[in-house]
Design a protein around this nucleic acid. Sequence first.
DNA 1: GGGGGAATTATACAAGTGTATAATTATACG
DNA 2: CGTATAATTATACACTTGTATAATTCCCCC
Lengths: 220, 220
Amino acid sequence: MPRPSSHVDEKLLAAARELLPTTGCHKLSLRQVASHAGVNLGMFHYHFGNKEAFLETLISRTYDEILARLEHTSQPDASPLENLRTALNALGRWARDHRELLMRLAADAMAGEQVVVNGFVKNQPRIIGTMVPRMMAAQAAGQLPAIAVPQLIGFIAGSITMPFVVGTVMSKFDLVPAPLLEGLENAVFSDEAISQRIDMALAGLQSALPPAAITNQKPT
Amino acid sequence: MPRPSSHVDEKLLAAARELLPTTGCHKLSLRQVASHAGVNLGMFHYHFGNKEAFLETLISRTYDEILARLEHTSQPDASPLENLRTALNALGRWARDHRELLMRLAADAMAGEQVVVNGFVKNQPRIIGTMVPRMMAAQAAGQLPAIAVPQLIGFIAGSITMPFVVGTVMSKFDLVPAPLLEGLENAVFSDEAISQRIDMALAGLQSALPPAAITNQKPT
DNA sequence: GGGGGAATTATACAAGTGTATAATTATACG
DNA sequence: CGTATAATTATACACTTGTATAATTCCCCC
């Protein structure tokens, strides 16, 4: 090892990690990253081979980093529904805290960026996968209706996270008068607002008890 | 008018309109559009000046087109909540029918595409604007809680539309086994599934009656 | 029927991208 | 002390993008 590494690969990943929440994957230019890291462009080919491989490890690292901040609560003595409720609250606050990054990744995924989709599919078990058993437990306990899991996940995820999108877009593009902005923050991003949405979502689901006709099965 | 127009501008708009749901605005290349229209690239500069202006009229036209398919129901004799419910059902089915296009536009907007955001802001009154009065009427009638409007809109919009995103992404990227795919369609995209989500969302909101503490006002 | 001029084409340009490679640097080791 | 060699730089290439302009086509109208 005639010349010790100055860990340029790590510098590149760190620079890209900084840029990611504001640019997203698709608009992330390698020259921009290299310049932001104070390093030469050629290092991408040397250390990672191509952009796709670079993005792959970048996304993998990023998921590891933010998922480490997602606390996994478990209260064996609580009912399945209450277990789900606290888990959803932790997940909702976590999503709020990383909303810029997550929104960029979501935009990239919706735009068809294959690397981002793969990254989500690979890490989704650590996010959604922890919720599904709790949902199914609540269903088994008769605390949630026996509706199809995608319908269940979509309903809950949407009711919790869509206000984040609305609030973020509204404030980023100045679609709300300045004096109301702080009120918007409180009404959408606060712990209480998140908790309220989760309570409303779960109560809404319970309104569909007893089991509705919409299941995962094709109608006969 | 020495040489009559062969309406190349309309051909370009039509070609772009066809490509839009599969490519989105950002990935829409002018050469691709021109080639798809069987027309020369230079016509963009001649007829529209630049890409932004072209996208502007394209998006404006597109909104006009799909919004014409959005039926505006009004039943003066029904309660505010029932009025909102039927309006939401019409809106939900409309969103489902145009989900590819709307998801691309949403991805573009979330990615920061200014033209798309402007287009949404300009046309949002014809979509959300028709819902807000009904929501506020239901609030005034005590049928919905007095929570902040962004929270209300986000909650309802998310619970209705997020399952579309989940279902679309899952099927587009083959994340669900083929035999379950038809069941997914029924469970998420059917009229009944939409209606069920709306019922659950409204019931969930009603669970927050009497008025909760989360309002648009900054806490004192 | 041949100018005139708008509509359309062909083509070039500058800027940006990812990729690749030769040249240079800098250090551990003989 | 000098050399082998991994790490880094400088630079060029091929491609795509939007933009611009000169050249050509084609039809109305005098």
